[in-house]
Structure formats: structure tokens, C-alpha cells
């Protein structure tokens, strides 16, 4: 079974986590940025920074994962505004 390291709870079974999708930044005052934010997420074959949630502890955090190999590169807790976390 695959494991993901929660920054608060350490390595846990990946079925304990909810996938919240790639990190996206937006500016509400710019309409094209809103469209991008809603519909255009990152879809690389390579490293992708994405939001995850550990369900039992409700810990929302960021992870960097390679979408070709499925290797999890690092996980960390968000700090500050959205754009500072990439």
C-alpha cells in the first residue's frame, strides 16, 4: 500500500488522504486569471505541487509529486499566502 508523509502525523497509508488537486494561484480582479484558476490546472508529466488533506486530522498541506513515476518528492505545511507556497 502506498504511503504519504503528512507533515503533522508522519507517514500514513495513502487511503487516509484526500486529493485536492494542483496548486493554483488566482487574482479575483482579473477575469482571465479566474478562468485559469477554475479550469486550467497543471497537468505536467513531471513534478507537480498539489494540495492534499489528511482526513482523520483534517490537516491540509502541500506535496510535490512526480506524475510520471508517482514518487512523492516532499510534503510541507502551507505558510503565508497561496503564491508564497509554490
Amino acid at each position: 500500500m502506498k504511503r504519504l508523509t503528512c507533515p503533522m502525523n508522519g507517514p500514513r497509508d495513502i487511503t487516509e488522504f484526500q486529493y485536492l488537486g494542483p496548486l493554483r494561484s488566482t487574482r479575483a480582479e482579473d477575469p482571465s486569471a479566474v478562468t485559469r484558476h477554475l479550469f486550467y490546472a497543471g497537468n505536467p508529466i513531471g513534478p507537480l505541487v498539489e494540495w492534499w488533506r489528511h482526513r482523520p486530522s483534517n490537516t491540509v498541506f502541500l506535496a510535490e509529486r512526480h506524475t510520471g513515476t508517482d514518487r512523492i518528492i516532499r510534503t510541507w505545511l502551507p505558510d503565508g499566502s497561496e503564491t508564497q507556497n509554490a
Binding site: 502506498k2 494542483p22 508529466i45 509529486r65 510520471g68 513515476t69
Partner: peptide, 13 residues
């Protein structure tokens, strides 16, 4: 699969 992936490997779960 519950998350984005570009690999066609299969998983037991």
C-alpha cells in the same frame, strides 16, 4: 486513480 498521474501502471487497490 484518485489523483493525477501520467503512468499506465496498474494498482492492486
Amino acid at each position: 486513480d484518485p489523483y493525477q498521474l501520467a503512468s499506465t501502471r496498474s494498482t492492486f487497490d
